[in-house]
Write a protein that binds this DNA or RNA. Sequence first.
DNA 1: TGCGATT
Length: 358
Amino acid sequence: MMANGMDTVVQQNGGATLGQASQEESKTNLIVNYLPQSMTQDEIRSLFSSIGEVESCKLIRDKLTGQSLGYGFVNYHRPEDAEKAINTLNGLRLQNKTIKVSYARPSSEAIKGANLYVSGLPKNMTQQDLENLFSPYGRIITSRILCDNITGLSKGVGFIRFDQRVEAERAIQELNGTIPKGSSEPITVKFANNPSNNNKAIPPLAYLAPQATRRYGGPIHHPTGRFRYIPLSPLSSTGKAMLAINKGLQRYSPLAGDLLANSMLPGNAMNGSGWCIFVYNLAPETEENVLWQLFGPFGAVQSVKVIRDLQTNKCKGFGFVTMTNYDEAVVAIQSLNGYTLGNRVLQVSFKTNKSKAA
DNA sequence: TGCGATT
């Protein structure tokens, strides 16, 4: 039912190395990394509220510029919602990013300044190699090797974030200036630039991929081109729902008559802010995360809504997605209209005002 | 077939 040659399944662990269950009271608080630059706190809240009731939500911003640092925290009331959020939202593609959702560690001084910058790495060293090299000195939270955008080859530079600063300090002492086996050049290991200290226009190294870097470390997954939408991420919690392409790739042809016409109907699509999109033929068990996964890759999504029967709580077969930018909405519609989701062919268009005669 | 009643 899957294995259509065009299906793309993203193996989503990004090499993250968290694993221990030895955490204490962090069963409701999540850290969300690799958020799209433009994503607002409200949009984050909207996304995570699709899982369960959110107690609090905080997008971390640059103290001076107010710009998003690309990560934030979401605290749920219920631990089971937090767990579900990890299961269904981790690896979600939003615009040019793939977000990471994991339990937040308890905030403390000891975990700050535990990020290391490593250079002089042999070009053939993998992320796993890097972790193996550093793992003797502590618990690795994240690791990453920077790759050339075009060639995908290692730049010989990477980052290691330890759980504790003391672990990072020890790794510096033990590894700085040493020559990895099989290499000829010594590596440099030092503390990474701390975004909060450097008030320069230096992007926060630990969390935000630089603008030019469209890629994150890990295996060379091919980021999907904007006009070549390859649905992915088998919808974890909901089960199967493997997305498949059943339709030729479409190009965005400007001024596709119907699209434009519909979107301009009075009082319809553009309600205050954003363009509302109607999605029809959703399965009864559809949840919000399905809509996020479908539309997220195309651009800024403000909100999604699955319409449910009040008695059965099952989806009534349709839903709505509000996107910020017209262009992105058009591409999303043209790309998703006619796609097969499960065994259903979706119909996607700008929302019109059918019933509800104001 | 179809276009949000839980702020």
